[in-house]
């Protein structure tokens, strides 16, 4: 076997490893049996069931609003920070921002839990959103600064041409920072949309997102038809699909940028 063939075989093996569980989940969601592993014929019943699943609808709305608000908020704050500290290479801000990325998520989740409890904040949408944002901030900052364009000279050039601060931000900085902003939005949205541990620790009674709902049901499959294995597979398939389509849209945007 040539090294090229070997590499190809290896690549296929990786892809197989990555996608088999997902493929299994997707196929199972069309199984008319409620149980995984017993094929009883094709059905779209579980998806029809989802249409009537009001808990899932609430969870979807919660997940989406949390992800949208948290990603927007964290990217806005990170952008301001990135614009303030640019120029110097590595700053105190960088040092402050990196730890959340390498910290074990559960430790951070516990910290958030303790902080909110100590402050006596009622846990729910706000605490989950703030918890996600605190964490997303680090990722947004890193994404925005990784391809740090040198703006200083461009700003100087624009100033000598008569442009004020607003004009410079609108016509120079924003267009040049846009690929970074889009990337940061995509990454933080997905981190937030798919997050489980931090949500679990920062949520309160009655507030749940899609991952939390899936977890609750997976623990007690007998509780209702909505919680049956393949109903969950249908729900998880939709969550995965949402995440994938955002990733694909992002890649398409970047490819278009690169081609121009």
């Amino acid at each position: 076997m040539s090294s090229k063939q070997l590499l190809r075989a290896y690549t296929y093996a990786i892809a197989l490893l990555l996608y088999t569980p997902i493929a299994f989940m997707v196929v199972s969601s069309f199984n008319s049996s409620p149980y995984v592993g017993v094929w009883e014929g094709f059905t779209t019943y579980w998806y029809q069931l989802l249409l009537r699943d009001s808990e899932a609808h609430i969870a979807l709305v919660n997940s989406l609003t949390i992800a949208i608000v948290s990603s927007t908020l964290s990217v806005s704050i990170a952008l301001l920070a990135a614009l303030q500290v640019r120029g110097r290479r590595l700053t105190a801000v960088d040092a402050l921002v990196y730890p959340p990325i390498v910290m074990p998520e559960v430790a951070e989740a516990v910290a958030l839990f303790l902080a909110f409890t100590y402050l006596g904040v009622e846990k729910g949408w706000l605490t989950v959103m703030l918890g996600h944002t605190a964490f997303n901030l680090a990722f947004a900052y890193v994404t925005l600064t990784v391809s740090r364009v040198r703006f200083e000279e461009l700003e100087d050039a624009a100033r000598t041409l008569g442009a004020g601060r607003l004009r410079i931000f609108k016509d120079i900085i924003l267009p040049l920072a846009m690929p970074g902003i889009v990337a940061a939005l995509a990454i933080t949205f997905l981190l937030s949309f798919t997050n489980f541990i931090k949500t679990l620790f920062t949520t309160g009674p009655g507030f749940y997102t899609l991952p939390i709902l899936i977890w609750n049901r997976a623990r007690r499959p007998g509780i209702s038809e909505f919680a049956s294995q393949n109903a969950l597979n249908a729900l998880a398939t939709l969550v995965t699909l949402t995440a994938l389509s955002i990733a694909v849209a992002y890649t398409a945007y970047m490819l278009r940028k690169a081609r121009r």
Binding site: D156, A157, T160, G162
Partner: peptide, 20 residues
């Protein structure tokens, strides 16, 4: 007088053309 109100034309060492 700030740069934006001086009416000077400047060519920078790295040119600083707007790449976009």
């Amino acid at each position: 007088v700030p740069a934006e109100r001086r009416d000077v034309g400047m060519v920078f060492q790295d040119l600083a053309l707007f790449p976009h």
